[in-house]
Design a protein around this nucleic acid. Structure first.
Lengths: 195, 195
DNA sequence: GTCTATAAATCGATAGAC
DNA sequence: GTCTATCGATTTATAGAC
């Protein structure tokens, strides 16, 4: 991991982001020092400040990037014809996407307290945007009779909490493959909002 | 908040726990200094060490106390006759209990990373014990045909994640009273596990 | 672009007076 | 039981050499 003194950058910037993502997820923002990040990358602490103005920007950049990519990824998914099919697509997409971005998801949930108020507002806006995607599906389905949902906003928060919860326990090496977990969670999702 | 110099203790111990609970929930364990806790109580930092051997014990004590009281509180609840009635009782109890202990619940979820391995194992054991209460209900209901649950362990984790999620958005001053929120979440819970 | 060295502040924890 | 004072370590961030 350590590099020869004075060696020059190839891709130090991305490696800093990668190291910060891993370490923030492991130990938490406040518990990870800039020196620890530098050590993980294999540079001295001063070098980090060629790529970020400060530690806060490092955290905010990771969270914003994650949330923006999440929203963009969903927007680029295909859009099935019926609310029921769209809900199924959302449930499977959410579980799958959050699984492969485990560290970023974890940080986006756990480190909200460590954002400045301005940065917090940005992340909250992106979170709300994403949640609105599910809310819209539920409202459409409620209107056309596919779903029985007294409050689409609350139902969307409830379902997202349930689906995101997969990340707290699922491991590739566990008892079930992700596809079966997605089946189970989709089934619970479907039943929870159907008449 | 500040106290006259040299004044003596009446209930400093509990006030330290109260301050630590509030501050850990607000800012996170790693971001809260012992000096900050002392300041919240109105004593100097040295006085804290008459009540806790170190900062880690303060965190662990709060988390263990919360989890033990949660398990004990559920065990003392009445036990309805049918799995369906027991599930409803659990859903409403979980939402209600977690609402009034918001700070402790938040800490118990967010600060697991900051526990020593030994302390982590204790808290995880208590969490598993509590989760098992729901799992047992689901298994009984699956056996007698009340529920359609392919995997009681996964279903219990999914439902607990959903129910606990209320804490992330519900406020007393919001659009709905807690009782209506409990109605909505119970309805989703019931449907999610019914055939 | 990375290094070393350092500034200035803060951390957890302890010692000893009262 | 609480205070003041302090130790030693660590923090973020910067300055300047190379």
């Amino acid at each position: 991991m350590a590099r020869t003194s004075g060696s020059h950058s190839e891709i130090t910037g991305p490696r800093i982001l990668e190291a910060a993502l891993k370490l923030f997820a492991e130990s938490g923002y406040a518990a990870v020092s800039m020196r620890k990040i530098a050590s993980e990358v294999g540079v001295q602490v001063g070098a980090l400040y060629n790529y970020t103005p400060d530690k806060q920007s490092l955290l905010f950049g990771l969270m914003r990037d994650h949330m923006e990519k999440l929203v963009a990824a969903w927007d680029q998914e295909t859009r099935p014809d019926t609310p029921m099919a769209r809900l199924e697509h959302f449930a499977r997409f959410h579980v799958g996407y959050h699984h492969v971005r485990r560290d970023a998801v974890f940080i986006a949930y756990m480190e909200l307290r460590n954002l400045t108020p301005e940065n917090f507002a940005v992340i909250e806006g992106l979170r709300s945007t994403y949640e609105g995607k599910l809310e819209d599906i539920l409202e459409e389905g409620a209107r056309n009779g596919s779903f029985s949902v007294p409050d689409a906003k609350i139902a969307s928060m409830a379902l997202i909490a349930m689906l995101t919860g997969v990340n707290t326990w699922f491991r590739e090496t566990g008892r079930l493959p992700l596809e079966e977990v997605q089946d189970i969670y989709w089934e619970m999702t479907r039943k929870a909002v159907t008449a």
